[in-house]
Amino acid sequence: MQALLPLGLFALLTGQASPAELEIQVQGLRNANGQVRLCLTRNPAHFPDCNGDPAAVKRSLPTRAAASIRLRGVAPGIYALSVIHDENGDGRLNRFMAIPREGFGFSRNPRIRMGPPRFDEVRFQVSGGVVRQAVQMRYLL
C-alpha cells in the first residue's frame, strides 16, 4: 500500500512524517580550491566527523559547486551538520599544532572555543518539507 500513496498521504495515514529536503547554504568559502565535505548525523557519538556511523550522510563536492547543497529524502529527526573546506583535496581537515589550517563550519553557527562544538550546540530538527541551514565557514590560519 505504501508504494501507491504519495508520501504526504502515507504520513497522514500512518502517523509517520514524510522525508524532508535539507538545503545547506555554505557561506564564506575563501577560495574555490579542493572539495567541500559535509557530515550529517543523528548520533552525538559520531559528531563531528561521522566516522563509524553507518547511518550518517556524507557528501564531497567540488568547492565551486558547494554554495548550495540539497539533500533529499532526509528522515525526520534531530541532526547535526559539520562542513570542512578540504582545500588540498586530501580527504581530511589539516591542522598545524592542533589548529585547523582549512575551513570548517557547523549547523547553527555556534561560537568556536577550544575544539569542535558539542552536538547539543549545533543540533536542529528535521520534520518534513524543506529545512534550511546556513553554514558560515571559519578559517583560523
Rank of each mutant, 00 (worst) to 15 (best):
V122M: 00
G73H: 00
C39Y: 04
I84Q: 01
N31T: 04
V135C: 06
V126N: 08
N94D: 12
V36E: 05
L12F: 14
N31V: 07
V126P: 08
G8F: 14
Q35I: 12
C50G: 09
G128T: 06
V135R: 04
L5W: 08
V126I: 12
M114Y: 14
Q125H: 14
N94F: 09
M137H: 02
H85N: 04
R108T: 09
V57W: 08
N88S: 01
D53S: 05
M1D: 11
G15S: 05
R111A: 13
R123L: 13
R30A: 05
G115N: 02
A3C: 13
H85G: 00
V36A: 07
R59C: 11
A17P: 12
Y139C: 00
L29G: 01
L5M: 03
L29V: 03
I69A: 06
L40G: 08
E87F: 01
L93M: 08
Q25D: 13
N33T: 12
F47H: 07
V131H: 15
G89P: 03
Q2A: 15
R42L: 03
M1S: 12
R101M: 13
S82M: 06
V57P: 05
F104Y: 08
G15H: 03
V131I: 15
I84H: 01
E121T: 09
L7D: 14
P116G: 05
G115V: 03
L71M: 10
M97Y: 15
V131D: 09
S82T: 11
R30D: 08
N43R: 07
F96P: 01
A3T: 15
G73Y: 00
F119C: 04
L38G: 06
M137G: 05
